[in-house]
């Protein structure tokens, strides 16, 4: 296995995630796209950790922290989406028009 093949895969997932963030209007779907981007980051870190034979397991540790933080973010995000849904009965970002962009 070469390191480059993992990097190309992760670049693909990251770019697909960016496409999703730009195209989706629904907050839950935007969040799913961000999860794809984070999955790409994890692949990078674990592959580089193996490549450098990192003695302190730095690459894997960073991936574990990213997973934990992602869990917290999803919890926060869904709480906010739920709150908005209660008040507005919609989870679409574009329909949030009280504050203009």
């Amino acid at each position: 296995m070469t390191i480059a093949q993992f990097l190309v895969l992760s670049a693909a997932l990251f770019s697909i995630g960016i496409y999703g963030v730009l195209v989706r209007r629904n907050a839950v779907l935007v969040l799913l796209s961000v999860e794809l981007m984070l999955a790409a980051v994890n692949i990078n870190f674990v592959a580089f950790g193996r490549y450098f034979a990192d003695a302190t397991a730095g690459g894997q540790m960073f991936a574990l922290f990213i997973i934990t933080v992602a869990a917290a973010e999803v919890g926060i995000g869904l709480a906010i989406v739920l709150l908005i849904f209660r008040n507005r009965a919609s989870a679409n970002i574009d329909e949030l028009d009280v504050l203009k962009w």
Partner: peptide, 10 residues
């Protein structure tokens, strides 16, 4: 990435 790492093995 490909340009830099080429076919370096893990």
């Amino acid at each position: 990435s490909v340009a830099f790492f080429g076919d370096e093995e893990i």
